[in-house]
Design a protein around this nucleic acid. Structure first.
Lengths: 144, 144
DNA sequence: AACTTATCAGATTTAATTATCTGATTAAAA
DNA sequence: TTTTAATCAGATAATTAAATCTGATAAGTT
C-alpha cells in the first residue's frame, strides 16, 4: 500500500476543513467532529491538540468547550496542516528511499520526481482552507 | 510521516533499476543485491519473488542462481513495478481518506489533487527503466 | 552421488502506526 | 458548591507494515 499523507494528516485536514466550513468562532467538541466525519473521537482529539500547539486550531476546556479555528481560514494553507502533522518528509525524502539522495548525488528519479513534488508543494502553499467551504459542506452532507 | 511508495516498493524499484543497469541476462543473488543496495537480504528476496510472478523479473534456482530481468529494460515501465507491489491505491484512493470520494461526490481536494496525480502517473508510464542506466550506476557507486 | 548455494514458501518476530482507555484538570450550568 | 461535560496527558491495546527465521526444494560443482 502506498500513502500520500498519514491517517493522522488526512484526519487533520478533514477536521480543519470541517471547522472552517462551519465558520470561524464556532466551537465543536471532539465528539461532534468525530460523528460528522466518522473518525475515531480520541484520535481526532489528539490530532487537534497537536494542531492547537501550532496555532492553526484553538481550544476551550470545560463544559461547552471544544475546538475552533485559531486564525482566519484565509490564512491557513493546506501546507501548514501537512507540515504540522507529517513534517516535510514528503517534500525532502528520496522517492526511492536512498538515504543519501541529494542534488549532488541524485537517485535515478530525482529530477522527474522533483518537478512533480514541487508542483504539489506549490498547490498546497497556494490553497488556503477558505477556498473549500462550499465543497466541504457538500461533501460532509454525503457522509451522514 | 508521509510516504509515497511503501518500503517494499522503494526496494523493488531500486532492485529492478540495479538489475537493469547491470545488464540483461546478468544474474545476481539476493545477497549480492542486498549488499550493493544496503537493504535486508530476505526482504529484497521476497520482493523480487513477487516481481517474478509478474514477469518483470525472472529467477534461477540452485548454485550460481539468482535474479535477472524478465524482459528488456525498455519494456519495463516504472508504473509496472509500482502497480505490481503497491497496487493502484496511490492513483485511486482519496487524498483526504474519504471512503466515498468520487467524481460525483468529490472531496474538497479532489480536482486539485487529481491533476497532480495524473501527471505523476503519466511520468511513471512514460519512463522505462532503461532510461536510468547511467544515473543508477552513478548512484550505486555512491552507496558502497 | 554427495555437497554446496541458491530460490522459494510459510511462519514468526519486531517496529511503527493507528486506535483506545484512564485519570487529571478545567469551566460552564444547575 | 456540586454536577456535568469538555480538553489534555500519558499509558495501553490493536493493527499493519517491515524485517527475519526456518525448512524445503532445485540445480550446478566436485
Amino acid at each position: 500500500m502506498s500513502i500520500i499523507f498519514s491517517k493522522k494528516c488526512e484526519y487533520g485536514l478533514q477536521a480543519v476543513l470541517f471547522l472552517s466550513a462551519k465558520g470561524l468562532g464556532e466551537v465543536y467538541s471532539a465528539e461532534e467532529i468525530s460523528e460528522h466525519l466518522r473518525i475515531p473521537k480520541e484520535f481526532v482529539s489528539k490530532i487537534l491538540q497537536q494542531l492547537t500547539a501550532t496555532g492553526i486550531v484553538d481550544s476551550k476546556k470545560g463544559k461547552k468547550g471544544g475546538f475552533f479555528l485559531g486564525k482566519k481560514s484565509s490564512q491557513i494553507r493546506l501546507l501548514d496542516i501537512v507540515l504540522a502533522i507529517d513534517g516535510d518528509g514528503i517534500f525532502s525524502n528520496c522517492v526511492l528511499g536512498f538515504p543519501s539522495c541529494s542534488h549532488d548525488t541524485p537517485c535515478p528519479l530525482h529530477n522527474e520526481w522533483g518537478s512533480l513534488i514541487k508542483k504539489t508543494k506549490e498547490m498546497l502553499t497556494k490553497q488556503t482552507i477558505d477556498k473549500f467551504t462550499t465543497r466541504t459542506l457538500k461533501k460532509i452532507s454525503t457522509i451522514k
